[in-house]
Amino acid sequence: MLECGMKVAQSWDDGVVDDLRLTDLLRRYGATATFNLNPGLYQSGRSFGWHYGDKEVWRLARDELTTVYAGFEIANHSLTHPNLADLSPMDLAREVGDSRRLLQDWFQQPVRGFCYPFGTFNPAVKEAIRATGHRYARTVAEYDWVFPPGDPLEFGVSCRFVDPAFWSRYEQAKASNGVFLFWGHSYELLDDAMWADLEHKIAGISADPAAEWVNLESLFAA
């Protein structure tokens, strides 16, 4: 059961260099967050990932991870970010299980959450996630009431961090003492104006006496 007051959580995917600036911002305002990582994609140095429009997106180096994400919840985003529903049972088990073991070894903390690459899953994927010890799996489906979910392995979100309806959805969750969960990728922050808007949101939530930052795994601890 939720205690009186709204709980606020945020979930960020893919573990890229922009997370350096993001985690610094979150620490300044005492905000918790969950970072969903793919341990099979990190190299000894920073590595090019892909283009987001005209922007180059780079992955962090393996030896940066524990410093960048110190103090934050780490969740499993699969080993190499494939479409899990397309995999053989053996490859699926490796993508889901090996990645969890690596993350727990690297960060020396339990990894209880999962985030579906591309937001896609099927019954076999859900069973593999359940079998490897995850308590919840985050989707990209949006709901007015996100917690408790009908199925913890189909855990939906309130909105993306850039949603024009961000504050109206926030107030809706607050009116019902519910959970407000937003998500995104830090590489989507393309300029100082977008960073300033995000800082305004983080600062506003941290200053709201009716809101409490929480880690996602804490919602499923009971």
Rank of each mutant, 00 (worst) to 15 (best):
F107K: 03
A70Q: 15
V111G: 06
G40D: 05
V179K: 12
A141G: 04
W195G: 14
R130C: 08
A211H: 02
N36L: 05
K201C: 10
Y29P: 00
T34A: 11
Y69F: 15
W195A: 14
D197W: 13
S99F: 05
Y170Q: 04
A210I: 00
E212H: 12
L22I: 01
D14M: 05
I129P: 04
E3V: 01
N38D: 12
L79A: 13
R21I: 00
L189M: 11
D191Y: 07
P123V: 03
A196I: 01
K201N: 08
T66H: 12
D151L: 04
S158N: 10
A33W: 02
S88Q: 07
F166P: 08
T139K: 04
V68H: 14
G113K: 05
L216R: 00
R169K: 15
A203T: 03
F118P: 03
L87I: 08
P39H: 07
A221H: 03
S11M: 13
R135Q: 09
F147C: 06
R169P: 04
A141K: 12
R28D: 10
I129S: 06
E127I: 01
T139L: 05
P149C: 03
S158D: 09
N177C: 15
Y136N: 02
R130W: 11
P82W: 11
G5F: 09
Q108H: 09
V157T: 14
Y170N: 01
D151I: 00
Y170L: 12
K201I: 11
A85V: 05
R27V: 06
K174E: 11
R94T: 14
F114I: 08
L25M: 11
H185W: 01
A222L: 10
Y52D: 11
S88Y: 08
I129A: 04
L60P: 09
A85L: 06
S158E: 11
F48D: 03
R101V: 14
V157S: 07
T23V: 14
F182H: 13
L37D: 02
A173R: 08
Y29N: 00
D24A: 15
S99Q: 06
Q172I: 00
G71P: 11
G150P: 11
G53R: 03
F118N: 13
Q108F: 01
